[in-house]
C-alpha cells in the first residue's frame, strides 16, 4: 500500500522537478461565480392594506435563440419519450423571456408568505418543472418523482447546507428540509441524468415573481413607497448594479418592463 503511495508521489515530485506544466483542466464555466439575488438584511412581515401592484413584461433582446435539443444519454423510454430542450433561455412570442426572477431588492416590511401555497418541484420525463422555483425560508419543498426511475436531487447551495439525496423510483414525494438563510438562486441537478437542470432561490420575503411564457410578472400587495426592482436570469444575469426604481402608489398598478440580453 505505502509503496504505491510512495511511487505515485515520487512520480509527482519528479514532474515537479522537471518543472514543466502539462495540460490544464478547464472547469465547467457554469460552475463559476454565479450572479446572485440581493436580499434585505431584515424583513418584518406585517399587514398590508391597500397596497399597490408592480407588473410588467420581460423581453429578450436580439434574435430568438434556437433552443438546444438535449442529448438523452440514459433511460430513453422514460426520459426520451418527448424531446427535451436546454431551458437556459426560453423565449416565446414577441420575444417574451420566461424564467426571469423579478423582485424587490430593498423591501424591509410587507406581507407574509402564503402559508397555504404548495411548494413542489416535479421530476417528470427527466426534467424539472418549474425550471426556476422560489422557496421561502424555513419552508419545505417537496420533490416529486413521477418517472419511476431513480433520480438524485442535488442542490448546490453554498450558504445553506448543500443537498444531494437519492430519490429512488419508488419515492413519489420527497419533502426537503427548510433552510434558514436567504440564498440563490442555486443550481439544482440530477447527476444520474446529467442534463436535468433547475434553479432554486431561498428567499426571506414574498416579493419575488418568476416570469411566465409571456414574459409577464406581477408583484402584489406592495406597501406604497419607492423600491429598487431587480431581476435575475440564468443566462442574462442581473441588474443588481443598477436596478430599476419604481414608485408604488396605494391601490394602483405601476408598470415596469425589462429587456435583457445574453451576458
Amino acid at each position: 500500500m505505502k509503496t504505491y503511495l510512495l511511487a505515485s508521489f515520487t512520480l509527482l515530485l519528479a514532474c515537479c522537478y522537471v518543472g514543466i506544466i502539462g495540460t490544464t483542466f478547464a472547469a465547467d464555466p457554469d460552475a463559476g461565480e454565479m450572479e446572485m439575488l440581493v436580499f434585505p438584511e431584515n424583513y418584518k412581515p406585517m399587514a398590508v392594506n391597500n397596497g399597490g401592484t408592480i407588473s410588467g413584461v420581460v423581453k429578450f433582446e436580439g434574435d430568438k435563440p434556437e433552443m438546444k435539443v438535449l442529448e438523452i444519454t440514459k433511460d430513453p423510454k422514460v426520459c426520451g419519450a418527448t424531446e427535451k430542450y436546454d431551458e437556459s433561455v426560453v423565449v416565446g412570442e414577441d420575444n417574451a423571456l420566461k424564467n426571469t426572477i423579478v423582485y424587490l431588492i430593498d423591501i424591509t416590511g410587507g406581507k407574509d408568505f402564503d402559508k397555504e401555497a404548495k411548494l413542489e418541484m416535479d421530476q417528470k420525463g427527466c426534467k424539472f418543472t418549474p425550471h426556476v422555483q422560489i422557496v421561502p425560508l424555513e419552508t419545505r419543498l417537496t420533490m416529486l418523482n413521477n418517472d419511476r426511475v431513480n433520480h438524485n436531487v442535488h442542490i448546490f447551495s453554498n450558504i445553506n447546507t448543500p443537498v444531494n439525496k437519492q430519490q429512488t423510483k419508488n419515492r413519489r414525494r420527497m419533502p426537503l428540509a427548510g433552510v434558514k438563510k436567504a440564498e440563490g438562486p442555486v443550481a439544482v441537478k440530477c447527476d444520474i441524468h446529467g442534463w436535468m437542470s433547475a434553479w432554486i432561490a431561498y428567499v426571506p420575503h414574498p416579493y419575488f415573481a418568476v416570469t411566465n411564457e409571456k414574459g409577464e410578472f406581477t408583484l402584489e400587495d406592495v406597501p406604497a413607497g419607492e423600491y429598487k426592482l431587480g431581476y435575475w436570469h440564468e443566462a442574462c444575469g442581473t441588474n443588481s448594479e443598477a436596478p430599476a426604481t419604481v414608485t408604488v402608489e396605494a391601490g394602483s398598478t405601476v408598470a415596469q418592463d425589462f429587456t435583457l440580453k445574453l451576458k
Binding site: F25, D28, P29, A31, D191, I192, H193, G194
Partner: peptide, 13 residues
C-alpha cells in the same frame, strides 16, 4: 454505470 460518463464534481470538473 450508465450515469458514469456525465458526472462532474461541485467545482465543475
Amino acid at each position: 454505470g450508465t450515469s458514469a460518463p456525465t458526472l462532474t464534481d461541485s467545482w465543475g470538473f
